[in-house]
Design a protein around this nucleic acid. Structure first.
Lengths: 117, 117
DNA sequence: CTGTATCCGCGACGATACTG
DNA sequence: CAGTATCGTCGCGGATACAG
């Protein structure tokens, strides 16, 4: 381990392995939750998201939104009214992800029910 | 934020929200990869997994396997031969997860292809 | 061969104050 | 309202040596 060549190889796996790729772009504590919120609510503003995502901070919400926008999972629309108004919604690209997320939510709910027994 | 009541509430979301629950039990860098390896190879030994999961360390593999076993995602079978032999395989519980993982892998591959163009 | 024990860096994540 | 700026912390993940 630890030579430059080996590290490069490990990093390059993100561009080869679909699971590593997905974990890399959608992993972390908040991104899937944000996408799910935007899926169920269609269009949301910054503070609206913040209220929905219990426990998230300004910093993490802004950072997550920015990364999701750069990777084209969501779209940001800014209206220069006063006060400022910014709307977030899912990009087209994300639609292909929704069935998987729905399956995941369904699976998670089943697990939670069985745990409750 | 930061009162005990609020923190308890946030933690309790893991027992309510299917996404938080899933992230909590299967999040992190290695668990999905381990499950995928065991799915494609059926039965694997410790060092076999280590060789397959490029970049993983003893510590992380052991820790991930232990947590996955505690939550009954995988099963561990030990043969007290000399040298020691331990086999890992998926638990029945994990079968319901496989279609989702397959969808995820397929989705990730599509994204990687489009990126390559 | 299959792990533990130990130690540790670093980056994810968070709290708070402040700005256009 | 929609964020930045700043600073702090905490634990995930890693490196290495060693054990049964």
């Amino acid at each position: 381990m630890n030579t430059i060549e080996e590290n490069n190889y490990i990093n390059s796996l993100t561009d080869k392995c679909p699971i590593r790729y997905t974990l890399n772009s959608l992993g972390g504590k908040w991104k899937l939750l944000i996408i799910w919120e935007l899926y169920t609510n269609e269009v949301m503003r910054f503070n609206e998201l913040k209220r929905s995502l219990t426990g998230i901070t300004n910093t993490m919400l802004a950072k997550s939104l920015e990364e999701l926008e750069v990777e084209d999972f969501i779209q940001r629309k800014q209206y220069n009214t006063m006060p400022l108004r910014v709307e977030y919604r899912l990009s087209d690209r994300t639609e292909t992800l929704i069935p998987i997320l729905e399956a995941l939510v369904s699976w998670g709910n089943t697990q939670l029910e069985q745990k409750a027994e």
